[in-house]
Design a protein around this nucleic acid. Sequence first.
DNA 1: TTGAAAGCGCTAACAA
DNA 2: TTGTTAGCGCTTTCAA
Lengths: 349, 349
Amino acid sequence: MAEKKRVTIHQVAREAGVSRQTVSRVINNRPDVAHETRKRVQEVINRLGYQPSAIARSLSQQRSYSFGVVTSGLKFIGPSRTLNGITEKAEELGYGLLLKELLTFETNDIQPLLQWLLARQVDGIIWAVPQVGENRLWMDTQLPELSVPTIFLTMEPRKDVSIVSVDNYLGGRLAVEHLVEIGRREIAHISGPLTWWEARERKRGWETVIQEKLDKKKIENRFWVEGTWGPGSGERAIRKLLDEYPEMDAVFVGNDQMALSVMQVASSLCVKIPFDLAVVGFDGIPDTAYYWPPLTTVYQDQYQLGCRAVSELVQLVEKRRRTEEEFEDKPKQILIKPELIIRESSSIK
Amino acid sequence: MAEKKRVTIHQVAREAGVSRQTVSRVINNRPDVAHETRKRVQEVINRLGYQPSAIARSLSQQRSYSFGVVTSGLKFIGPSRTLNGITEKAEELGYGLLLKELLTFETNDIQPLLQWLLARQVDGIIWAVPQVGENRLWMDTQLPELSVPTIFLTMEPRKDVSIVSVDNYLGGRLAVEHLVEIGRREIAHISGPLTWWEARERKRGWETVIQEKLDKKKIENRFWVEGTWGPGSGERAIRKLLDEYPEMDAVFVGNDQMALSVMQVASSLCVKIPFDLAVVGFDGIPDTAYYWPPLTTVYQDQYQLGCRAVSELVQLVEKRRRTEEEFEDKPKQILIKPELIIRESSSIK
DNA sequence: TTGAAAGCGCTAACAA
DNA sequence: TTGTTAGCGCTTTCAA
């Protein structure tokens, strides 16, 4: 593993008997090089194993063909799937990624982070941290520091930035409307932590449907419980609901993990699913097909979310470059539609 | 979002009435600056909001304080957890990350990838792609291209490179020894795809124990089935085993996902777990505590795996820098021990 | 303690 | 079609 000295453009130029500029033209596939010259230079490049330095290029071009990605909660499957979409799309479109992870969802100290990315000449930033608690506060004051195009994921639409999110409100509606359709009238809800925007949206979908279709004017407190997303909280929540809302004949659970424990506890208490209690989850992780019973769930395509974020960002970046910052970009808000997957936890054959 | 012109070291120098060199000394906290001067320069830096360009620094120092990370299968929870460990440890130790994902596990065309990373002056590389099929073939010929320190994850130890892996063989042993201890004598196995090194190691652990402790000289084909890691394959496998190996009183399943479907199918066929059939999984994902019954499983700390990889790499990088490449690094092989988590799928209360 | 000069490896702009 | 010059923003080396 001896450190081989880097071959530089200079050496290639000398070896080929041309100027550095000509070599530069060859490696960038510029048209204005004589066929003969190009061939000769290319030959030297191959012989010497020359590889242009992307760093030097970034410095001189003031761009890096790479994006900064800020994520959080990589230990959960959701954020990883999004990252998966981001990496694949970025690869496809020829951009590299600088990855940073926030240790907690609720951080407003993002100054050093931004600086770190900008110091590396990223051409754009993808903010893949979900909106939780006050963690968008920094935007109000520090948006101007974002001197590069930026896309925000999984947050409440606001007009001054570009956003890509799953339509969680719609997802909530789909779940609950389905339960209404199969004849359930007493539909409970176990939400995620309400500091999360996603959790609030799903809950709002539930509320809207039971108010509109089931004529429940007032959402009583006993109709719903706030969970933590973790499987343990599903267990606690369902016990409480069974206790305080005995008429309940269905429950819309904020995510699949909680739904898993809901079904387990219900079964162990001899509550038959879906006969006594229909259950619908949210996320659509593959395992749900093998839960017992197989779980009806709202599938959100987080991979797609990542892909879209990159596509949009590339557009922003290239537009800004073309127009030489003539006009401001119109921020775009994109909502991805989730889909309902119906399985046995909500259908009696 | 107007493009603010970058403040450069030059402007700071002029404004503060010193040379660029002095500014450089200040931002790098060098000792040889007069207290007065330092204060004045620092004040200008703050006033102008100057941020040094990491790109320029990388170019002139020939290093970037960042690592290349090559991963694959981010849509699975395992690789994401490892990445999680990598990001956190890297952050802690002051390194950034360039992320690349291979679209398939079995790729040998890694030349462009390596070049891409090296062109960006990464100080080291973490190869976080598990060993599958022939996907280590490139190492035989292209190891010399790795002009920077590199750590390989999840592969068979070999003496010429540094490796961090979970001890899957030990994990297999732990699982099966436990089953022997609770009195099982006919222990089947559902492996992962045997192109995977991890799957082979787990299977080897199983084989060793049933040969040594249960005196089965010959591993009959009907004792085991090869799965795909996916939950669906668990279902197929267990049906086959129940059919061909009816004496079976326990099964060691290659991962938790397959174990989930094994238990579901077994239950639906009125095979009582753990009475008729004890089940042990592998991975230790949090959901397993809420499977029905709760699953005994071998926990592998993939987060830790990522952390270790970074720590080792940082050591390699810093050593090489100190010794000015005087002596070759002794490659190190690190095996992380998995742990058995005993739950009801293998214990009769 | 400070500064000048040279360089890191490449590209943009202009001239030939 | 090719080469020259002048950067990009910082650090290293050496001299003052």
